Simulated scan of single mutants.
Amino acid sequence: MLSWLVSIADTILAAVFTFIGFFVLLWTFTMAGILQDENGKVLHCETSNTGVESCYMKEFGIVD
C-alpha cells in the first residue's frame, strides 16, 4: 500500500516539475530573443552612482 502511494506522489511531483520547467525554458528563450540582436550583441544596462541608467549594445562573451 505504501509503495503505491509513493509511486503516485512521485508521478505528481514529476508532472509538476516538468510543467514548471517548461515555462522556465520558454521564458529563458523569450528573454534571450528580446535581449539579443542578430549580430551577437546583447543589451547591457548599468546604473551609475547618481542613479542614471545607461544601456548599450555589447558583444556577448561567456567570460564577462
Rank of each mutant, 00 (worst) to 15 (best):
V63H: 10
C55M: 02
T18F: 12
T47D: 07
L26P: 03
I8S: 00
L5S: 06
V52D: 15
F17G: 01
V63T: 09
A9D: 01
V52H: 12
A32P: 01
T11V: 10
S3V: 09
V6L: 11
N49C: 09
L2N: 06
L25D: 03
L26S: 05
I20H: 04
M31Q: 13
W4Y: 14
V24S: 04
V52F: 15
K58D: 04
W4G: 11
A9L: 03
A14W: 02
A15N: 09
L2D: 05
G40D: 11
H44C: 14
V63K: 09
M1F: 15
I62L: 12
D10Y: 08
A15Q: 13
W4Q: 15
G61L: 08
S54F: 06
G21D: 01
F17C: 03
V16Q: 04
S3P: 01
T28A: 12
F19R: 05
V42I: 09
A14S: 05
M31P: 03
V24L: 10
L5T: 03
T47E: 13
S7M: 12
G40V: 10
K41C: 09
L5M: 05
A32T: 12
W4K: 14
M1T: 12
M57A: 02
F23Q: 07
G51P: 01
F22T: 14
V24I: 15
S7H: 08
L5W: 01
C45A: 08
I8M: 02
C45N: 10
F19G: 06
L5I: 05
L26V: 13
F60M: 07
L5D: 00
T18K: 11
G40A: 08
E59N: 10
K58P: 00
E46G: 03
V6P: 01
F22L: 14
T11R: 12
I20P: 01
S3G: 04
T28Q: 09
S48F: 08
V16S: 04
V6N: 00
I62S: 07
E46W: 04
L13S: 07
L35I: 15
K41R: 14
V24M: 06
N39L: 15
F29N: 07
E38P: 09
T28Y: 12
S48M: 09
D10M: 09
T50E: 13
G21A: 06
W27K: 07
F29T: 11
L35V: 12
I12G: 00
C55H: 00
C45F: 11
M1E: 14
E59K: 11
L43I: 10
D37K: 04
F17R: 07
L5Y: 03
Q36V: 13
V16K: 04
M1S: 15
G21W: 06
G21H: 03
N39R: 11
G51T: 03
Q36H: 14
V16N: 00
T47I: 14
I20L: 14
C55W: 01
A14V: 05
W27E: 08
K41V: 06
V63F: 07
H44A: 15
A14Y: 02
C45E: 07
D10A: 15
T47S: 11
M1D: 13
Y56R: 15
W27M: 12
M1N: 11
L5Q: 04
D37F: 03
V16D: 00
V63Q: 05
T18E: 08
F19L: 13
T18R: 09
W27N: 09
